[in-house]
Amino acid sequence: MAVTNYLILAAILFSIGATTVLLRRNAIIVFMGIELMLNATNLAFVTFARIHGDLTGQVLAFFVMVVAAAEVVVGLAIIVTIFRTRRSASVDDVNLLSR
């Protein structure tokens, strides 16, 4: 089996995550889609590290994880705040900008 298969898996996961963001309305699920996309890139990073024999790829994946963790904290806090005021976790309900 070629190592490229990992990359194809990463591409598939990334696409599924992106589609989730476009199609789901629950803010938490949308958020999970984003996490999925981040993880897919991480897989690609790790695979490239293996292909090139260079650990820097893993370091970058590590950074991505940390940033993702920080992002989750803020993002979920925003979702909670919105839910408190609007009693809804649907991203479609947050469209004040259109008016």
Binding site: L9, I12, L13, I16, G17, T19, T20, L23, R24, I29, M32, G33, L36
Partner: peptide
Amino acid sequence: VIAALGLL
């Protein structure tokens, strides 16, 4: 992939 599709 199946699990990821579950997300969808």
